[in-house]
């Protein structure tokens, strides 16, 4: 009995001490939609390498939403129960995330959006990149390459995700500028390289030489199209191909002259969102991430802007080596 009491006292003391530590340093939770793919891995790594985290000014916990809106909502409930000071939110679904934001707002916890959008006006701020713009940029590249005429195919992300909706909007803006271009096919490959490869194989059978350009709404799918073209014994250089994100394989393909890609700076989105979240918790906080110096087009403005737009960087033959170097 005494032994049990002792253990309980010890446990209570231990719990007390951890609570004390937590009170000293603000705790910030990051709820991301899923950590299976390279892009979110880079995002999460950048969050943990933020100077404020490295120096111990804040405590950051990353929650893997496992691509499930309900899992993300439960993680919000956990963070609210544990009294986190702020939450960074990368939602899987533009609509389903709104309930979670509402719950945190009701508990008085500020939520900063990052990377993907949520349909809620209760976000303190959003630090991401404008997907409409990237959709326009990649389509514009393809159309310029084919001289604004001929047939193109569009390989879409999962229908209904904010990136798919907005990148398609951008694709269509560019296509509207080239009335002589025909969209031969438009289907989803769910961001997947293998699915895009199968689609492209079948499209090449159906349309053959009529396909001049491939607009992939992400790099993985553009890479799948490249493999399909090679597999059909055709020359990749006869096609204008573009993707978005700047994943490592795409950087290598750009270096090889096979495609164009537009780098989405997930690292800057993560670190920017964390700076905004810390500013909401600590009075007089000055941003510590180097990204604010890197992107002069995105002024800090005291961390109070409703939206921070991290610029896209087209990957070119000139900058690709430097970008690959950063991935090592």
């Amino acid at each position: 009995m005494t032994k049990l009491l002792k253990t309980m006292t010890l446990a209570a003391a231990f719990m007390g001490s951890t609570a004390a530590i937590a009170q000293d340093v603000p705790r910030i939770g990051a709820a991301v939609y899923g950590l299976n793919a390279e892009f979110m891995q880079l995002w999460a790594a950048a969050l943990e390498q933020h100077p404020a985290v490295v120096e111990g000014k804040v405590n950051v916990t990353i929650f893997d939403g496992r691509y499930d809106a309900l899992v993300q909502q439960e993680q919000f409930e956990t963070m609210i129960t544990q009294g986190f000071d702020a939450i960074i939110f990368v939602p899987i679904d533009i609509e389903a995330g709104a309930t979670a934001v509402q719950a945190a707002h009701d508990a008085g916890i500020p939520v900063v959006g990052s990377n993907t959008r949520v349909n809620s006006d209760l976000l303190l701020s959003y630090v991401g990149s404008d997907d409409v713009q990237s959709g326009y940029m990649e389509a514009r590249y393809v159309l310029d390459q084919i001289g604004c005429e001929g047939g193109v195919v569009i390989i879409e992300g999962p229908i209904g995700q904010s990136a798919q909706i907005e990148r398609l909007e951008g694709n269509m803006q560019a296509l509207a500028e080239c009335p002589d271009v025909t969209v031969l096919e438009q289907q989803t490959a769910n961001w997947s390289r293998a699915e895009a490869q199968t689609l492209m194989e079948n499209w090449l059978t159906r349309h053959g030489d009529n396909i001049k350009g491939v607009i992939g709404q992400n790099d993985e799918m553009a890479l799948g199209a490249i493999e399909a073209i090679r597999g059909a014994g055709l020359d990749v250089n006869d096609f204008a191909i573009a993707g978005i994100d700047g994943v490592t394989d795409a950087l290598m393909a750009v270096k090889n002259g096979d495609m164009a890609s537009i780098l989405q700076d997930g690292a800057a989105q993560a670190q920017g969102a964390l700076d905004v979240a810390i500013a909401a918790v600590l009075d007089g906080y000055e941003p510590m991430s180097p990204i604010w110096e890197q992107y002069a087009d995105m002024p800090w403005n005291g961390g109070t802007d409703a939206e921070y737009n991290v610029p896209w960087t087209p990957v070119t033959a000139e900058n690709v080596d430097a970008l690959l170097e950063m991935r090592q």
């Binding site: 793919a37 997947s192 390289r193 293998a194 490869q197 890479l223 493999e227 597999g231 394989d249």
Partner: peptide, 13 residues
């Protein structure tokens, strides 16, 4: 075969 076809071995394959 899948890795060899897609050009990289993808963890989400």
């Amino acid at each position: 075969i899948l890795a060899a076809r897609t050009g990289s071995a993808l963890p989400q394959a």
